[in-house]
Design a protein around this nucleic acid. Structure first.
Lengths: 337, 337
DNA sequence: TAAATTTATGACACCGGTGTCATAATGTAA
DNA sequence: TTACATTATGACACCGGTGTCATAAATTTA
């Protein structure tokens, strides 16, 4: 079985390869009759253009890179799912590239990535979207990029996020509405802009109810389950013990739940626990975690879709969108007794 | 800043592009002096070859595809991690391709994938490694592939697996050693060969202790958390209730744990629970799950490494390896009272 | 020292597409 | 009917590498 290329199609249809190329790319100036004829040969020979050859000619790879460095595997999976949907719809492929955020090696690492794979664009997932040096590096290399779930910036970048501050506000409101006033907070990774946002939302809610902010109730986490365990220990050791804990993501909340349960505390009777993200674990444990659901897949999908259309045709106005998150109440929070 | 290509290097070094190409690929028949000179120009101009051009000339994409259809996100993440390590070491890239196992559309889907991305090879993760039609399709298309965690076959394919049967045997032995004789079993997804293997190991252990196999203690799951909930319901409703449950993966085991806890049962005092895979959730919940740890990353890494070296130079003998798994005991299992 | 090998090098076609530009075919205005 | 636009088409260079083969230079052999 011979390989079928644009040349075989051309000779079969009795036209030049350029005409075949025109049909392929829906270019104008092809007569209806010719187009039909070529399309028929496509069918007959079962032709599909070679993306590598195409890439060489157009200096494009039809590949989007996805950068991540995130302790939450489920978050990564969701990001990938959204990115893949967008890629699929546009005949792009997704190349995944985990890499360490810290260290001056990052830029070199990315440079190498670009050299070895000629990506058409890059999706920056948290915390990469907030790293200004990276953004300006990519700009200097003229590599289009899109930021997912990162802070709002006054620039021309593509950015899709959700309102972390508002989400954190709402879940804190929920706890307060249940009668809680001593609410511990576990921060996320300091490199992530969401960390500051969620903290702000927590404080805003407290403030709006005249509850005094208490430094001692705040623990530094980093979004990992392990950091949640450490934070949980400190919080559960407090005297008096807070009646509720709001962790900046579900993994850390799960850690609090585990430790509390280990210590024979009843959740939510003895202590309410809230998380953030609506990760799978939030519903895989008992009691299920009250949390904030964010449309991670949708955010990423929109970001990548925009990125791809930007690659095809650079836009004037930046695409910056904030999607809604929503409160999901489960069994881990209840009214104070 | 002009693009630096093989041509610019050639003219800079005062040699032909073919000579540059020789240096690039470590081909013989280049004098030491010339080689030095060219290498110096590489440095000077900061040259890296364009992989797309290379790909066109050699009909290679330097991309490995990773096929999956698995309800366990953490499993996918681990597979990706291992595959990425192997790719990184060999300057390959990884393209991820989730796709539905069921349906006659699968082959078409893969065909399309191959046409749009010209993969150099494919890693088949469970359950794809056990799908004979797919294997023969890939063979007919001359696409090299490697099978991860699939059944041992008497063929010439690259295959890295772990011993599911033995793992299941050992964890059942563990339960029996704790005094359990009424051990429920939740099967995995019927399409996965691991499902049969784990079931076999369970039965072998029972048999080796003269414990009669009881059909009523066996539930059909599919590896998803949700299926675990359904199975758990049936099992916990049994009269008399089994004293232990062995679920074919940790997600289903976690579901049993959740339901049992919801029903006020104490784990492990009232019922012991064991899982399989050592997924993150196994240690994120309380009590932690006794389970079997499999080297998923290592399996995949070896498979992809072999795949890549096979692509570079087709091997005569098949690479078929079985790695060891090991029992991890946590708090979810204890001696019967 | 001449002939026969071996090694080093370059010219050129090729991979399979796309971009540019010239030209042929067709349609429209004068 | 002629002049002028417009549309359709193809020839050919090009993207940036690699493969083949001829030939020049260096080395060995006779």
């Amino acid at each position: 079985m011979k390989k079928v290329t644009i040349n075989s199609v051309a000779s079969h249809a009795g036209v030049s390869k350029k005409t075949v190329s025109r049909v392929l790319n829906n270019e104008p100036n092809v007569s209806a009759a010719t187009r039909e004829k070529v399309l028929a040969v496509f069918k007959e020979l079962d032709y599909t253009p070679n993306p590598i050859a195409r890439g060489l000619a157009q200096n494009r790879s039809f590949i989007i890179g996805c950068l991540y460095d995130n302790p939450s595997k489920s978050y990564i999976t969701r990001v990938q799912t959204g990115a893949l949907e967008a890629c699929k719809e546009n005949n792009y492929n997704l190349l995944i590239h985990p890499c360490e955020f810290r260290g001056e090696a990052l830029i070199n690492n990315i440079e190498q990535l670009l050299q070895t794979s000629r990506l058409d664009g890059i999706v920056l997932t948290p915390p990469f979207g907030d790293f200004a040096e990276l953004a300006s590096f990519l700009k200097s290399k003229k590599i289009p990029y899109a930021r997912v779930a990162s802070a709002l910036l006054q620039d021309d970048s593509i950015s899709v996020r959700s309102n972390d501050e508002q989400g954190a506000f709402e879940i804190t409101e929920h706890l307060i509405s249940l009668g809680h006033t001593s609410i511990a907070f576990i921060k996320g990774h300091p490199d992530h802009s969401a960390t500051q946002q969620r903290f702000k939302g927590y404080r805003r809610s407290l403030a709006s109810h005249g509850i005094e902010f208490d430094e001692r109730l705040v623990e530094e986490g980093n979004f990992s389950y392990h950091s949640g365990v450490d934070s949980a220990r400190s919080i559960l050791d407090l005297c008096p013990r807070p009646t509720a804990v709001f962790a900046s993501n579900d993994y850390m909340a799960a850690a609090v739940l585990k430790l509390a349960t280990q210590r024979q505390l009843k959740v939510p009777d003895d202590i309410s626990i809230a998380g953030f993200d609506n990760a799978p674990i939030a519903r895989h444990i008992w009691p299920g975690l009250t949390t904030i659901a964010q449309p991670v897949e949708e955010m990423t999908k929109q970001a990548v879709t925009q990125l791809i259309s930007h690659i095809a045709q650079p836009q004037e106005q930046p695409y910056q969108v904030t999607l809604e998150s929503r409160l999901i109440t489960r069994e881990s929070t209840s009214a104070i007794k």
